[in-house]
Amino acid sequence: MLKKNGGIKFFDTDQKNELRELYALDNPKAPVVEAFRTLRTNVSFASVDKTFKTLLITSPTLGDGKSTITANLGMVMAQAGKKVLVMDADLRKPMQHHIFSVSNLRGLTNILVQGEPLAEVAHEVSANGLFFVPSGPIPPNPSELLASNRMLKLLEEAQKDYDIVLIDSPPMIAVTDSSILSTRMDGVMLVVRAGVTRVDLINDAIGQLKKASANFIGLVLNQVRVPSHDYQYYYYYGHKNKEAEMRF
């Protein structure tokens, strides 16, 4: 479970080697989507004293799966009745527009640099209440833009219009962008990849968040291999129809 001070939630978002999938939309009865729903519940538990309006999702290194986690968490939150905004604040190597199949010609950088309205840039990607702001064109000064007063005002505006704002930000070890954003967030989650992300880099990332006085709520352990019989049990127990015959 996701808990403060480093609790872990397990995911397998690499079934059949398909990365960057929107599982919660394409296959809502899949076991991995149940894991996202559990993560959604755990986030609500972590915010019991104060309702989270902004949640930063980052990782120590590139390829840990933060973008997939962010998109699917946003989808299951919207499916639960929340009005959700997913914002791609990775202004160096954005991925969310690929996940949502949306153009990246206009996005966050257009809002911050040109003053375009949030309502005109946000895409409604699900009738359930999920909205998405791409990164927009890659700027020469990502850290400065994310630290700007315009970014602060944008976050304040978004919190008024949406129940929760999920921010996908760059990996922490290489650049300071996520540390900058973390100070403005109600909570921060760190996505790490099972058997791949080095422990020392995880500790370094957590140390950076603590140094920034960020509200670090826990780790998400991604791409954990789950025995196939666990999937078989899920489908048999939960769905007594054709899904019961599915195997992974």
Rank of each mutant, 00 (worst) to 15 (best):
T176C: 01
L146V: 04
T70R: 07
I167Q: 08
V192K: 01
K160C: 02
I164F: 14
M75G: 01
L166A: 02
V121K: 05
S143Y: 08
E116V: 02
L166Y: 00
R247G: 10
H239D: 11
V102S: 08
L85W: 13
T109L: 06
K53H: 14
A35V: 05
D49Y: 09
V113D: 12
P227N: 02
F100D: 04
A80K: 05
G7N: 06
K153F: 03
I8S: 07
K210Q: 12
L56N: 12
D204W: 01
V199Y: 02
F52I: 07
P134W: 01
A30S: 15
G129E: 08
L91M: 14
H98K: 13
G115R: 14
E156D: 15
N42L: 00
S213K: 15
L118A: 14
R184E: 09
S59C: 12
I206A: 00
T197N: 03
V133E: 06
K210F: 02
A30V: 00
N5E: 15
V226N: 05
M75H: 03
P170D: 05
E245V: 02
M87C: 06
S59V: 04
S148A: 08
P94A: 07
P139F: 03
P142M: 07
L209V: 00
M95Q: 12
P28Y: 08
E124A: 14
R150P: 01
Y231R: 11
T58A: 07
I138L: 13
L85H: 10
K160L: 13
K242G: 02
Y234G: 07
R92E: 05
K9N: 00
A78W: 04
V220E: 01
D163A: 01
L155H: 04
A214P: 08
L118F: 12
K3N: 15
L118I: 14
I202V: 14
D12W: 11
S103A: 13
I164V: 15
Q96Y: 10
L2Q: 11
G218I: 01
D26L: 13
K9T: 08
T13K: 06
L56K: 06
G195Y: 01
G7P: 00
A212N: 03
S178L: 03
Q159D: 02
P31C: 06
R20T: 13
R37T: 05
D90V: 06
P117L: 11
E18Q: 03
D26R: 15
A71W: 13
D204R: 03
I57H: 07
